[in-house]
Each structure stands twice: as structure tokens, then as C-alpha cells.
Design a protein around this nucleic acid. Structure first.
Lengths: 207, 207
DNA sequence: AAGCGTATAGTCCACCTGGACTAATCAGGA
DNA sequence: TCCTGATTAGTCCAGGTGGACTATACGCTT
């Protein structure tokens, strides 16, 4: 039996995170994800979303809670998080937050890091900082070696870009850690109630 | 009949670009891609690569040129670029170079931009610069609006990171354009012969 | 000389993605 | 009033990905 955390796709994480806020039917997930511009983070397509929900159900991370109906609209199946689902999404975010490979996963983990406690985030991002420093050193070392070897500079342009972006991310991360250390950045699952946020977003989405 | 350029996957582009250097069999592509650390740009797996080659052949972008054999090793099928393949990879790079969505595609286009003439690259990256500026403005506008709306700052952290990285890329791009304008960065398909590069790499891979 | 690990060359399949499609319902204009 | 277009809710399938697997051959050690 595989650990369900290893079967989580980015879309799966988003779905679980949404259900942390409120029970929902798939179509509403699509609307919310679009309203929040989460298509910046991943492609939002019907096919993938419905399939993902089915997979998560089979893995026991969420479950049907009923079928309701709005006026004469088609029926819709509402889903809720299981305890396993609640744990798994947290574990996934904790695992991805320090990882320096795989941008996509990190961006999602960061976007969902508000599900963690502040101290947790500080520690995990501290680990990331270390990993970023190591990656940066590896990178410039590799670049220097390639130049010494006589690799034509034109094929190194993409590598140089990568180094610049690594550098920028390091500075951003330091600034964020400072903000988190001083308490001027409100944080944590308790910084706003889930229902409040959900309702505000739903209202915004309906306008 | 679909335009073959729209069926190109990242791996497909890499395969075509490799064949621009020399005729090759799939297994050698894997070795070269690994030796050049192109797994920084995309996942390199046997399954995907062989399947990709088959698709490219069906699309008429490459073709078999023979089956040879090294000692008692298994036979291997060598492939060569068709004229359509040569044109398509160039067209793809030209199309992806100015695009600001889709990092993966851009990084590959940049890594393969040495297949274009310098003037071409300067123009296309100029377009990219404009697009980046627009994206940056959109982004900070959106951020400001979200803050004004009272969106909790913790959920904006990922968006802020994005803005920082956009900014860094803009500065990198300006530096690159300056280097390309002054002629201190050798460029172009003619800056080194393909065979020379290929042979150098093959030698490096064999050590 | 036997044995073991690694390199060569490629096949196969389970799974995931995304776009096209269906089908009904509601809103708004001519 | 009828028609058009958008919204709601979801299904389906072709196609791409990546990891596991096969099978032989070479090199190196004991």
C-alpha cells in the first residue's frame, strides 16, 4: 500500500486545501480556483479536476456527504475532507516547502502554507534557505567549471539566468523570514476564520 | 491537418535540436542530454524519449537513416532531421522566446536560442522585455487591489515572490540585451561548428 | 574462471492531463 | 415572445509521461 502523500498531484493538493475551508462540490471548486486566479499556479480544467476528486475519494482523503440541488439545476455531489485528507495536505506542504527542485510544487506549498503554524513555516523556510544556498554554490561552481572548459558562452546564457533567479529568491526569502520573525506579518490558521474567508471569496466570485 | 509546431512537446524540441548537430540513435540522445545536464530543463526518461521520437517520425520531422551495430551490441536505429524538422524547431523557438507564460518552454527556447541568428534573438527578446514589463505592471496592480480589498497578507506571499522574480528577470534580460548589442557575446549558429561542439561533448561524455 | 555490477538499447503499461463534448437552465435583448 | 449566449454540472477519450521491466554484453574483481 503506497503512502497517499506520494500520489498527490498539485491539483489534488488544491482540492484538499479548498475542502479545508468548507464542504463543496467539484464545480464550485473550479469557480473558486478561477476566482482566486489559482490558474497562475496550475492549469484548471474540468477533466483533471473531476478525475482528481475521484482519485482522492478512492484514496480515502475525501468523501461524499450528499447530493443537493439548487433550483432546477442539475444535481451535484458535495464532498468533505476525511481526517486522513486533513493530515495529508499538511504533510505534503511541510514536505514541499523546503524543496528547491520543482517550482510548481513549491509555489503551491507556499500558497497553502497559511495552513501551517508560523513557527513551522519559519523552520521549514529556514531549511529551504540552506538548500538554496547550497544550490546556488553548486550552480556557480558548475558555471565556472563550464567556462574553464571552454563551453561557448552562448549556451550558458540559460544557466546564468537560473543563477540570477536563485539569487533573487534568496533575497526574497531572507526578507520574508525577517517579516515572520518580527511579528508584523499576521500568520496561521487562526489569523482569519476559514468560513469568513470562504464567504468573502464566494461573495466576490458571485459579483 | 494540424500544424506540427503545435504538437511539439519540450522533449520533442530537444530531440530535434540534437539532430541538428548530428544524426543519432535515441539511446545516444539520452546519454547526451544527461551529460549536458539538460535534466535541469525537463525530465529525461526512456519511455518519453522513445515515444517522442516515434511521434516526430510520424509527423515527418525526422526519419530513419539506417540501422547500425557496435560490436555485438543490440542493433540501433539512427535518425536524421527532415527539412520540415529543421524549420519547425526554429519556428518553435522563435514563437516561445517572447512568451512570458510557461517557464519550461521559455527556458528550453533560451537554451536552444543559439540556433537563431543574433539579430533575431535581439528582436524576440525585445518583445519579451515589453511583455515582461506589461506582466509586471499587471501583477503589482493586482497586488495593490488585493491589499486594498483586505485580502490577508499571508495569502499574498506567493504573489509577492512572483513579483520579485519578475523584477529579477527584467534586470537579467536588460543585461543580456546589452551584451548582445555590444558584440562582446559571440553568437549564432556560426559561432562554432556543430560537429565541433558535438564531438567535444561526445568526448566529454565518454570520459 | 566465475560471478557481479553496470552499460547498452529499447519495450510496455498504468496513470495523469486537458480539451472537446453534452445537456439543461437562466438572463437579456430585439 | 423567441432567440442567443452564457452558466451550471459533469462526462469522455485521445494522447503524453514516467517508471518498471527485459535482455544481452562488457569490464572488473576474487
Amino acid at each position: 500500500m503506497k503512502d497517499p502523500i506520494d500520489t498527490l498531484t498539485p491539483m489534488g493538493v488544491m482540492v484538499l486545501a479548498l475542502l479545508r475551508e468548507a464542504d463543496m462540490h467539484p464545480y464550485e471548486m473550479v469557480r473558486l480556483l478561477r476566482a482566486r486566479h489559482d490558474d497562475r499556479l496550475l492549469a484548471i480544467t474540468n477533466g483533471t479536476l473531476y478525475h482528481t476528486v475521484a482519485r482522492l475519494q478512492k484514496a480515502g482523503l475525501l468523501d461524499e456527504v450528499g447530493i443537493d440541488r439548487d433550483g432546477n439545476r442539475p444535481e451535484r455531489t458535495t464532498y468533505t475532507l476525511t481526517d486522513a485528507g486533513r493530515d495529508t495536505v499538511i504533510a505534503w506542504v511541510r514536505r514541499e516547502l523546503p524543496r528547491v527542485d520543482s517550482e510548481t510544487e513549491f509555489r503551491i506549498a507556499l500558497a497553502e502554507s497559511h495552513n501551517l503554524e508560523r513557527d513551522d513555516v519559519v523552520e521549514l523556510l529556514g531549511e529551504r534557505r540552506t538548500a538554496l544556498l547550497a544550490a546556488h554554490e553548486m550552480h556557480s561552481h558548475g558555471l565556472a567549471k563550464a567556462r574553464a572548459k571552454g563551453v561557448p558562452p552562448q549556451v550558458l546564457v540559460e544557466v546564468e539566468r537560473e543563477e540570477v533567479l536563485l539569487d533573487a529568491e534568496l533575497r526574497w526569502l531572507d526578507a520574508l523570514l525577517t517579516r515572520l520573525d518580527g511579528d508584523d506579518l499576521p500568520w496561521g490558521p487562526s489569523a482569519f476564520t476559514d468560513t469568513d474567508r470562504y464567504l468573502a471569496q464566494r461573495k466576490a466570485a458571485q459579483q
